[in-house]
Design a protein around this nucleic acid. Structure first.
Length: 278
DNA sequence: CTAGGATCCTGTCAGC
DNA sequence: TGCTGACAGGATCCTA
């Protein structure tokens, strides 16, 4: 998905458009994508827990949205605001084949598109959000965790490789495949290292790197979206703004010039500088 | 309990 | 052209 920075970007953007506006109607074209009974109400707040987005309504209900791998939220009203899995849908005429749910507001329409149907929108009583099985299990986000705490968590999974460990949302929350690779590269840690072999100072560096790469992405989120909104259909390459290794296999490492390679770790495509990351 | 692999689903791309 | 397999910005379930 859309990892934490993308969801935060969506949260900030959507807040501008739909807070204090009424959700009037829901159209569902894929049952799997919508859990619970559609509801109506005025949006009072938009929150985020890790990669989950929560839209609170004034009727004690909330919409919990998880985009998983290919989810997108595209708001179309006076302005268009699109975020999530990048694709031509950001500027396409909607709804289209990948539109799974349409939320109609009094001032515009929010399209939930999701190619692979892994994501969902779920109606939950607002008070029950903290008890939702997914929300409940989430660990702290990197900014809220001390490096000692993080180090201890790694020690609890000594035999798991470090990449798998930091992708686990119950251990540290927010990183996905891109930011995991970027954070490991910035810390000069090879993704296949056993978590138990990570030293205290490496853990500290990794935690800081996780904060840094996601901060940087969140900071550029606004301009990224502006690029996509352009009427001429110009596509902003979101990754170019900050990625040092992700999807850069065959290109030189920005530090040492060694060719970046792509390997498989924890079942995921993984990008490393074979020289910088040991 | 852990760690790793299969799985959900659609679409695209490389290789024959 | 058409087919096939691999793979994809995530998380869960199953197995050993």
């Amino acid at each position: 998905m859309p990892e934490l920075p993308e969801v935060e970007t969506i949260r900030r953007g959507l807040s501008q458009f739909i807070i204090n506006h009424k959700l009037k109607n829901t159209e569902i074209s894929c049952q799997k994508s919508f859990i619970g009974t559609p509801t109506t109400g005025v949006v009072t707040n938009i929150r985020r827990f890790g990669k989950a987005l929560i839209i609170d309504l004034d009727n004690q209900k909330s919409l919990m949205i998880h985009l998983r791998m290919t989810g997108q939220l595209i708001y179309d009203g006076e302005h268009r605001y699109a975020a999530g899995h990048p694709s031509d849908n950001f500027t396409a005429n909607l709804p289209n084949k990948q539109t799974r749910v349409i939320l109609k507001f009094d001032n515009g329409t929010l399209y939930f598109n999701d190619q692979r149907k892994f994501g969902f929108i779920k109606v939950v009583p607002t008070v029950e959000i903290p008890n939702d099985p997914f929300i409940k299990k989430l660990a702290k986000e990197p900014w809220d965790m001390t490096s000692d705490e993080f180090y201890q968590k790694l020690q609890n999974h000594p035999k798991s490789c470090i990449k798998a460990t930091i992708l686990d949302q119950t251990i540290i929350c927010g990183l996905g495949n891109i930011y995991a690779d970027e954070a490991l590269f910035a810390s000069h840690i090879h993704p296949k290292r056993r978590s138990g072999d990570i030293t205290k100072s490496e853990a500290k560096k990794l935690l800081q790197s996780a904060c840094n790469v996601m901060d940087k992405s969140i900071d550029s989120g606004g301009s990224t979206m502006a690029t996509y909104v352009k009427a001429d259909g110009t596509k902003g390459d979101y990754l170019e703004l900050f990625a040092q290794v992700f999807r850069r296999e065959g290109k030189p490492c920005p530090y040492c010039g060694t060719e970046i390679t792509k390997i498989r770790v924890a079942g995921r495509g993984t990008h490393i500088c074979p020289r910088c990351q040991k």
